[in-house]
Amino acid sequence: MPGHPRTSPAGNPPVLAEPLEVLYEEPGLPCWQLPMRLAAAYGGDLGFAEPCLYANFVTSLDGVVALGHEYRSSGSAISGREPADRFVMGLLRACADAVLIGAGTLRASPTHHWTPVHVCPAAQADFTALRQSLGRPTRPELVVVTASGDLPLGHPALLEGALVATTAAGQRRLLGQLPSTCTLLALGPGPRLWMREVLTAVGARGHAVVLTEGGPRLLGHLVGEGLLDELFWTVSPVLAGRNASHRPGLVDGRELLPGQPVRAEAVSIRRRASYVFLRYRFPRHGPDRP
């Protein structure tokens, strides 16, 4: 397994003042040897079987993932910008070949960069060391999915460079409009994109370990096509509430129960103060997978 020496520069402070407490961990999980400060903060090592598609979300106690279109970067409001949650987000990005998001997530986070250091700059050197030990480039490739081609073209994450997966109609809309740092990929005539085809194209670029950060509608497509392998779920100790605005849960745009139950198995439970960090494994064959 890939590894990294358990060394840390003298006098380097810990990544987290209070590390995650391990309440449960299934024996025999895949693991890569993390740099010492990352392992200390996470409470052990972390790794993935390849290929793997895993998701990371934070929700309120009442299951809200996003506060509505009128609220920008609502994930930060739900998480309270908890350092442990931001560390886990950075660690999961540091493990990934690519980070997969939808156009809605891009629009809702106008200044965000989907890199490990953006959410946890204190661990920059450790994230770099981990990626080097795994043979990864400096940052994961950002993959943006849009059927329509409706994207905020000046977004800093696009200027930094991304793979944009779209339909033929979306390609016509974006051709000559995207920053030169982006790669445009048309997958079928539309009107929808099949996530299996997106992931096949991502895999052809050498990306075997893919993290998705949403949003809930994209996760619904991934679950519906039986493609999700794991879910990392932070439960924030706050109530969001619901009234007139649309405040989705983890999966949006698709009904699963009662006809298509998708069951998961808990493989890890951690906590930091009143925040709970859950890890679930999904069966390889979901409801729409042959």
Rank of each mutant, 00 (worst) to 15 (best):
L142G: 02
S148N: 06
A157G: 12
H155G: 06
Q171P: 14
A165M: 14
A169W: 07
T166I: 09
A162Q: 00
V164M: 08
A147L: 03
L134M: 05
T138L: 06
A162R: 01
A168K: 08
P156S: 01
A165K: 09
P156A: 03
V164G: 09
L142E: 07
P137L: 07
T138M: 05
S148M: 06
P137F: 07
G154D: 15
V145Q: 14
G149D: 09
G135W: 00
T138E: 07
D150C: 06
A169P: 14
R172Y: 00
T138S: 11
L153Y: 00
A169T: 15
L158V: 01
S148Y: 14
P137Y: 07
Q171V: 15
L151E: 00
A162W: 06
A147Q: 04
R136N: 06
L158R: 03
P140M: 10
L153M: 01
V164A: 08
R131S: 04
T167C: 03
L134Y: 00
S148H: 05
G135E: 04
S133D: 07
R131T: 04
V164Q: 09
A169V: 15
V143S: 07
V145C: 13
A157K: 12
V145H: 15
V145N: 15
S133R: 04
G170E: 12
L151N: 00
T167W: 05
P152E: 08
T167I: 03
G170I: 06
Q132H: 03
A162S: 02
V143I: 12
A168T: 05
